[in-house]
Design a protein around this nucleic acid. Structure first.
Lengths: 275, 275
DNA sequence: CCGAATTTGGAATAAATATTCTATTCCGGC
DNA sequence: GCCGGAATAGAATATTTATTCCAAATTCGG
């Protein structure tokens, strides 16, 4: 590679890089200035573009982009791109390995476990913010706000969410019926015209939950389903399927994202009823 | 490329792809199943990884990953990667921006509410990681791991946590008794020598929970209390007081931090029992 | 326990992509 | 308007990366 000796040190972070581009900007010959401008304008796609693609969009030949990379202190485009790529890939470390490490590591270190569950919760919440399906959410709010009684159902690990919703709706003055299967009763006859069902279930879906959902569908009640992706088996079983990805740690999930979504749903329904 | 004729149509969107992977999952030979699993686990970095890198992380040779791509209907890894790359180049899953976008929507809009609860949950989790009292946690784990039966109690908004713990302990093969006050019964006579109590309660503390705690203290059972700071009123009422600060949004809290702590506690107790 | 079919890992090959090189153009000073 | 140095574009090359193919290992059915 040319000019190795009088090339500056390469930026080590995206912030460094931005600074360096800003420094250079304005004191650059025409084509290189174009490179600089385009790099800041199109930074979203740098991680996934080849030099050829990027320079084509910038309206310069690839060699010009290469020269600009050298000017910034990189050995080439690949080195610059690495910065953007690690930024994109940040997050999700490999959970399988971390779990294995934890098991083999200092057994019974509770604080480390807390850290892992905190991390899992954080990632789940980020995922919710990223992947939220706003349209379906709006429709779910609408459907539930028109219901006379909202039937809540969730078994096993979904039960805590149903229980919490029952508390929250109560506080908000909205009538609910919690189907908890107490005593083996399914109370499916409690479903009345004008009601709606909010079911929470994760794969493998519990038979009781699906039974209630099917019953509601049979008498044409609106059904909102809160579940985890990909939910292939549930398509067509409910009008409105809201998926929320939870990052599991070990066998258990933090439920953070599911609860956040459920709370937002409840509060939105209450707001809509009043308005 | 091999087998072009009997290869299915390639998925056209990430949703399609997820569905297809879910379909295949379970009916796959060992190595290909590893590919499938890793593809969903590590989906954040697919856009910026080479086959070599990705398959190394999945623990399979590159050729196996290629075979899996063909199975999904793609002509190769590049075609699969294109799906992820276009997703990255568009929506920029930058958490901060996305959250800002969600919030800036019409006030009271469901998506904006989701953003608020996500933010509250995240802050709570950060707080937990920062303020965790490791010493007390260790002692709590020790106390609970020696119990014959763990009595769980939590009313009102603490009930979901108690319910979840009941599920988790069950899965871990640990005997529990959930005091849910059903039918106005308090079952305080269920407390036996050798048992321990894990109580979850937030200010204002519910009388039923405190009654059970006092009863347990009276017969010298260890009591672990999970509550919110400052917990001044509770000092002296239990041996071990674990505080966890939750950031509320509106009248409701996400419970993220409480659940994370509760889960870690449960898993640590199980680990300690086995060791 | 054997043979057939499937699955696997790795070496060989092909394609894509980055990078350098050089002839040519551009521009400012005399 | 001509000279010298910087800047440029595209062709040539090197490197990385994807993809295929096949021999060896494994699994499965009888």
């Amino acid at each position: 590679m040319p000019d190795t000796q009088n090339r500056p040190k390469p930026p080590l972070s995206l912030a460094d890089l931005r600074d360096r581009i800003a420094d250079l900007s304005g004191k650059l010959p025409r084509v290189l200035q174009q490179c600089a401008d385009h790099l800041v304008a199109d930074h979203d796609s740098i991680a996934v573009s080849t030099v050829a693609e990027l320079s084509a969009r910038a309206g310069v030949p690839p060699s010009a982009m290469m020269r600009f990379c050298h000017l910034l202190g990189f050995s080439g485009y690949s080195e610059l791109q690495r910065l953007y790529r690690t930024a994109v890939a940040r997050g999700l470390p490999d959970y399988a390995t971390r779990l294995a490490n934890l098991k083999s590591g200092p057994a019974g270190h509770p604080a480390a476990l807390v850290a892992e569950f905190v991390e899992a919760g954080r990632l789940s919440l980020e995922g919710l913010a990223r992947d939220l399906d706003e349209t379906t959410l709006d429709q779910a709010v609408k459907a539930l706000s028109q219901a006379a009684v909202i039937h809540l159902v969730g078994y096993r690990r979904a039960l805590p969410v149903a229980v919490y919703l029952s508390y929250v709706f109560e506080k908000l003055g909205i009538a609910t019926f919690l189907h908890d299967g107490l005593g083996g009763l399914d109370h499916r006859s409690a479903l009345r015209p004008g009601d709606a069902v909010l079911a929470i279930t994760f794969a493998p879906y519990s038979a009781e939950t699906l039974a209630l959902v099917d019953r509601a569908r049979a008498i044409a009640l609106p059904v909102v389903l809160l579940t985890d992706p990909p939910a292939t088996a549930l398509r067509g079983r409910a009008d409105l399927v809201l998926t929320v990805g939870e990052v599991d740690f070990g066998a258990f999930r933090s439920l953070s994202a599911t609860i956040a979504l459920a709370l937002a749903l409840a509060v939105a329904v209450a707001a809509r009823r009043e308005g």
